[in-house]
Design a protein around this nucleic acid. Structure first.
Lengths: 193, 193, 193, 193
DNA sequence: CATGAATGAGTGTTCATTCAT
DNA sequence: GATGAATGAACACTCATTCAT
């Protein structure tokens, strides 16, 4: 098995465990065992448990960014882009809840783990944030969205999706998260007006 | 000092430390020391570190709920209520960042800590959620907000505020978070239409 | 039991184990067990295994220095002082071989453990070295010893005793190390002339 | 490259690393890397890390013994032989500090590593000790040295040189260790009288 | 001959919790 | 009420050694 494949395997398994039990309640031994390698061998791939957490964020944000990037490249209205993104996101959430959960629970919540050398660790998610920015600016250019502070617009998109994600994680939503897609995308679009 | 006073003192100090260093990186010894009591004495107030975390959530949600409750009781439009809430929230965030941070970082992120016996631990925040529901239903009743799935509306309000809260915690917003109040409340109101 | 007493107890037991098995082959668990305390409690006395090693050196050198200091204060010839010191040292070696062995094996051999912040860790033994210096200078003043480089004289005294110590540790000397006292002290005195 | 050459290369590099960082703080991987072979290949030359330590001692003692042996064969007074040996030793120490340091730090200090099956591991140095014995007995035969217990005489020679070696390793001697040669050899000769 | 992936027992250290005083 | 000494299970990480290739 190639080194890169093993690395991905470790990340995907860790993502799952971290999202379910949290970073601090998941041990390196458990991660190693989950993919049938030894503890020692784990350290041939990641120099520390912490570095695995960082690599996992990069892994997830890259995936999210890719989805959004391809949507940004389509030639439809911004409203439609938002809708596509919501559908795509909910689908992703449905298929890979552990990735999204990891992003929300571990990355957003354990900021101290990711910051180093005076930089806040925010840059790990930069590739995704950049795509959000493209999405927003497109809508502003076409007058679909009003010109507001970027951080507010950013909060509208990611916050609303984050809210529903949290509720989904709490298992209190009805079956089939996709059914919320229309209302959600409409809400986001409205919030950006 | 009254037992209740000590309890609040412990909670407020814990809130501060948990929000800065995370739940798992804050030790009981540190909490005890921060308010000059012994470790042993700490356990006269809370049977476990975990129970302190739960009590802290109740403490914070109660505060948030109180603010919102009094707003809900005013006789202004729902749009205005949202605005009052946003201002009130941002003010609270400014004055007690550790409480909000705790709520977002510890409660939302370490769900495993709060759930027990099959119940998700969500009920700890119920008193706050209930007020949100009142706020939403009021707006629907007056036709200011459109009738949508409660969870979607809930995500709009809390998600958008959550987004700005996260960014605030990352220290990337300009000074004076209050300046975002208008844009934020407008965005929320729009998202609820 | 007083904190200071426990500390001494830990040091004396550690001295014994370190001298027999070496620093790296002695575990904190073994040390703790040897005096019937828990691993955790060990760390209430010493912040690290390493710090115990340092405290142990200070402990031993202080003892050695005390012996030598009282000899230095007597009003006899330097030749006689050397003899008294040799007898005293051999006696100490006989009674507390682990302390001397520790000094030779751990301190002299694992210099990296004791040095920090650019200082060589040599100062831990300073109190003893200072007494050696007094002994030498006394002899020089009375013309019993010739004036040579301090380091050479220092090597004569400590080296010769170190040599016999090593051989004693190897169990190749005849029983009763005291029988070497006369020859050793004569040799040392001669070497200093 | 011949097997023997590789072995020597490993030993010389290990000697360097062991003397600097100690036996237990030097890993097999580091040794292997230092001479650009794989860990696995290392084990084609030495069955264990421990056996490398033993081979290293043999390597160093053989070198020291050779120097001393050739001096023993010269036809000069014993006093002169001591002087030649001191000069030769100091020169060796200057040129190959890692070898001497290894001898003092690892061999003398980690006796447990070298002893096995009831034998003290002292025999590894026998070839060198034998030459010391020859040197001493020569001096006794010519009445330059007085007849004393062999172990005492042995301690005089090796101890005094050991003392200066330690000080040299501590970097507290003035530049040019050779300047101590005369005083040292005089001291040794005197101690043997 | 040569590699380095893989192992897993072992280490120092931490920390929630208890309990005698 | 109040202390802090004492516990010990648990964890991240290391490293000598093996072995398939």
């Amino acid at each position: 098995m190639l080194k890169k494949e093993r690395e991905s395997q470790i990340i995907e398994s860790a993502l799952d465990m971290f999202s379910k039990k949290g970073f601090y309640c998941t041990t390196v031994a458990q991660i190693a065992k989950s993919i049938n390698i030894s503890v020692g061998h784990f350290y041939n791939f990641f120099p520390s448990k912490n570095s695995l957490a960082k690599a996992s964020i990069t892994f997830v944000t890259k995936k999210l960014a890719q989805e959004l990037s391809s949507i940004n490249k389509t030639h439809v209205s911004s409203k439609e882009k938002i809708h596509l993104f919501v559908v795509s996101y909910l689908n992703f959430l449905d298929q890979n809840p552990q990735m999204i959960d990891y992003f929300f629970k571990v990355y957003l919540a354990n900021r101290e783990m990711f910051s180093e050398d005076g930089d806040s660790g925010f840059k790990l998610a930069k590739v995704f944030i950049d795509e959000i920015e493209v999405l927003i600016n497109d809508g502003i250019k076409t007058n679909e969205f009003s010109q507001k502070d970027f951080y507010v617009s950013f909060s509208c998109i990611t916050g609303i999706l984050g809210g529903i994600t949290f509720l989904n994680g709490e298992d209190i939503l009805d079956e089939g998260i996709q059914k919320y897609a229309n209302e959600l995308s409409l809400s986001i679009v409205n919030s950006l007006r």
